[in-house]
Design a binder for these strands. Structure first.
Lengths: 347, 347
DNA sequence: ACACGTCTTGAGAGCGCTCTCATATCGTGT
DNA sequence: ACACGATATGAGAGCGCTCTCAAGACGTGT
């Protein structure tokens, strides 16, 4: 890097130094197709000597491509950074994107007023596309993205009104219902009778689908409504939900928590109330991330390959961006499988 | 938002519709200084009708400002998303930045090859400045930022060789040494004799400073080297470090962990080995984030206002960006205080 | 009535790049 | 030797915006 820290060199400067035209330098910088080897060599040297780096704004202005995509998470930072689920998924996304030399911009939306800011940002063409997570039913984000014509892939099946209209939203999801069914069936098979459920916020499809899976496994009997509590997908929420469940139905003998984090919260409450796990109460979680293996006792849980889901989302978006005008093969949502992992907490 | 989803309207289009010149529209869009009220009104209406949003690339090209800053964390995603420290700090940063209508881009650097990509990104002028965290001693990032002339503020005192040369790097840090000193003194006062320490990676100044604080509190005696173990700032690392310490010095009666996460890991090991806390072994953590209050028993720890540190970093950078050429008052590093919070784990 | 300063507006250059199109260069077959 | 297509290079327009500068509109004091 040449340390002549003045104004940064432009294409023009490189061209002058290499004794060629701007156009030729541009060609070399972008791969060098159709430029003689000796000339390429000369240009490359000039680039190195000057420490030339293309100005991304100028490039974006003419190509109408920024080489960046936004990852939008509709949760407060503190929640995002305490749930390993996001980290894992983000890792998958980040892997896939950097392989395609695309930048990842992380945006959080928590407050009402953030929406405006983010909406403007997305519409301003800072990014070529967006990956959106953790949307709740009435989230205005999808409409904003659609309005701005921004290609978007969702994490989890979108549940907003009108999501079934064309064009169909693109998303990656796991079979939450089946996963929950497996978890609860497992508890039934172990002889548990009063199986409670701690749900996520029911305006998210993943939470709702897991609740449906729970219902499926208990059919045709149907669950006791007192055995259902909302844990908001946080450890704290799980803790409180467990307390409410125990108050309502003291003799419950199992609980299916729709996330490992909530299961951990439940475990805390059970311990505090002197219930032994799994002897008195069996516990099953969902996700199979660190908190599951770390729990005491280690959690029986439902595994989903979160990192792979992230990769799939990124790949879907990248493909979508590639086939902008060109019709290409129609892209469709992806549903991955769920698998029960049995550990000590379910007896 | 007008849903005529064709090519997005330009300034030109708005000008035509409002019956004024491009320049006037530009003025209105940027605040409207020096434009008559009635004209502003007219332009605003045209903007709304057309759903005009300024093209950020074009704007950035001429202003040489992008309105975005990068937050670079030199850790793998999985670590970042399991340590609430980052989340908290990021929240502070994000608050401060959005108040100034500046976007935050989050970038992770974990692998060797990420450095190239990020370096190019930072040099390409995608952002006006950078906030960097968790740098280790030989990190090439600062040199890259300096080479690209990118204004940068560091989280934690930089420890790379040459950091004392001009121009002095800007950073925000807490008084880690003093915090650690308070923690260990507290243990001494409680009558503990064999006080172990679990450190972070010693190529980070925060980890090193805390170790120094530990030494200070034990002076002039000086610590037994077998009482020092590295826990890498992770829960798992803390767990293993505690095991090593117990193997080496079975009768230790206290441990100062340089982060709450490591303290939690230590707690796990102690429980597994049948040591009671605080009766047999007193434990003190550092950070005072969720894991501290959540621990069993709740942790005595050293509080630092992490969110405020984030805010300060952002503010420092913003101020730095504001005073680009204009000399302004010289900006200087900020050191915040640390405060001992006593809970059950220290007896 | 006039000259003057102030406020408001428009014309036009130019930010650094890509890309089309025309021109220059080359190799090949006759 | 020549015409021809293929290949390599350069000239120049233009992406959408900001900003300087000049010109026009308007009010004030004499």
């Amino acid at each position: 890097m040449s340390e002549a820290n003045g104004p940064r060199p432009t294409l023009e400067a490189v061209a002058a130094r290499a004794g060629v035209s701007r156009a030729t330098v541009s060609r070399v910088v972008n791969g060098g197709a159709g430029v003689r080897g000796t000339v390429q060599e000369k240009v490359r040297r000039a680039v190195a000597e000057l420490g030339y780096v293309p100005n991304s704004a100028a490039r974006a202005l003419v190509t109408r491509r920024t080489g960046a995509v936004a990852v939008v998470i509709a949760e407060p930072e503190t929640r995002v950074f305490s749930d390993p689920f996001f980290g894992r998924q983000l890792r998958g996304i980040s892997r896939e994107l950097s392989a395609a030399d695309t930048q990842l911009l992380l945006l959080f939306v928590a407050h009402r007023d953030d929406y405006d800011r983010i909406g403007r940002y997305l519409a301003a063409g800072h990014v070529d596309g967006a990956l959106m997570f953790s949307l709740h039913r009435d989230d205005p984000l999808p409409a904003m993205a659609a309005g701005a014509g921004l290609p978007t892939v969702y994490g989890g099946r979108p549940g907003w009104p009108g999501a079934e209209r064309e064009p169909r939203p693109l998303y990656v999801d796991t079979d939450n219902r089946d996963g929950a069914r497996q978890a609860v069936r497992h508890l039934v098979e172990r002889g548990r009778r009063r199986i409670a459920v701690i749900t996520g916020p029911l305006d998210q499809t993943s939470a709702l689908d897991r609740l449906h899976g729970y219902r499926d496994a208990l059919a045709p009997a149907g669950p006791d409504p007192r055995l259902i509590a909302d844990g908001a997908f946080t450890a704290h929420g799980g803790e409180r939900a467990m307390a409410r469940l125990l108050d309502a139905v003291p003799d419950l003998d199992a609980v299916f928590a729709s996330s490992d984090l909530m299961a951990n919260g439940a475990l805390r409450t059970l311990r505090a109330r002197g219930r032994r796990v799994p002897d008195d109460v069996a516990v099953v979680g969902y996700d199979d991330l660190e908190p599951a293996a770390w729990a005491d006792p280690p959690l029986t849980t439902v595994r989903q390959d979160v990192e792979e889901m992230g990769r799939l989302m990124a790949r879907l978006l990248l493909r979508r961006l590639g086939t902008q005008g060109a019709g290409g093969p129609a892209l469709r949502p992806v549903i991955t499988g769920a698998e029960l992992v049995i550990r000590e907490s379910s007896g």
